[in-house]
């Protein structure tokens, strides 16, 4: 019990410190989602603790992912007019994005000569974790690998997204939101909120739509690779 509380408090403390460092030096490689796990993994490895022991305390944080996801409804409600006005842009780009994500992942995994179950595990990774995991199960992937791949996707989107936004001069908050929500689910949403509230709300909607589209197209698109 004491150990669980220790790992919980430890995670929050490291995250707090990482956030403070990121606020002082806002560099992509200092994003708390990257630095915090690196520090924690190092400490766990050095102290010989297993992940299960760590997770007994840390799971209290994971349990807040779902309430936080539901809180997105508040953002959707507050920015409903912006969403309605941009429905066409959102639907067109999210559909293209979700299909691109699925096909290019499957194709790259195929090119590397990896096995089918790995392909089916990675292909749904752009959807938000709960959806990606269930899609993976449906098309013959390994759900736990999908969960990790989804997470790495979030990290990649979070770090590369701002560079793409800068290079392509994506300056409309609508397009920024779509870019982050479609490519990097919840991690992308938190990044989009760093730009502004509209980008964040659009990203929330893009994430949900990406999840629905992936759920619908995955069983059909995967047949091209079977």
């Amino acid at each position: 019990m004491m150990q669980s509380i220790f790992w919980l408090v430890f995670t929050i403390a490291i995250y707090g410190a990482a956030k403070r460092i990121y606020r002082a030096y806002p560099k992509v490689y200092l994003t708390p989602l990257l630095t915090t796990p690196i520090v924690i993994i190092t400490i766990i490895a050095l102290s010989g603790v297993t992940f299960d022991t760590y997770d007994k305390g840390a799971i209290w944080l994971s349990d807040l992912v779902e309430p936080a996801t539901i809180a997105l409804a508040v953002m959707l409600y507050k920015h409903l007019d912006v969403l309605k006005k941009n429905a066409k842009a959102i639907i067109a780009s999210v559909c293209c994005g979700a299909i691109t994500a699925f096909l290019t992942t499957a194709e790259l995994v195929h090119m590397f000569g990896l096995k089918y179950d790995l392909m089916a595990s990675l292909a749904p990774r752009t959807a938000t974790t709960p959806i990606a995991v269930s899609v993976s199960g449906i098309i013959g992937g390994v759900p736990t690998i999908t969960a990790v791949a989804t997470l790495i996707t979030g990290l990649v989107g979070l770090t590369l997204g701002p560079l793409i936004v800068k290079w392509l001069r994506i300056n409309s908050p609508i397009a920024q939101g779509i870019l982050f929500g479609t490519s990097a689910h919840s991690a992308g949403i938190s990044k989009a909120f760093e730009y502004n509230a509209i980008a964040g709300s659009i990203a929330s909607l893009a994430m949900m739509l990406t999840a629905f589209v992936t759920l619908l197209i995955a069983p059909w698109l995967i047949t091209f690779f079977q």
């Binding site: 790259l108 990896l114 590369l160 409309s172």
Partner: peptide, 24 residues
């Protein structure tokens, strides 16, 4: 795995971001 994810994520961002930027 990492190259597949990075490559595909870049393509998704290019595609979704550019279409959305054009339309807006």
């Amino acid at each position: 795995i990492l190259i597949s994810i990075i490559g595909s994520t870049l393509l998704v961002m290019l595609c979704a971001g550019m279409i959305a930027q054009r339309i807006s």
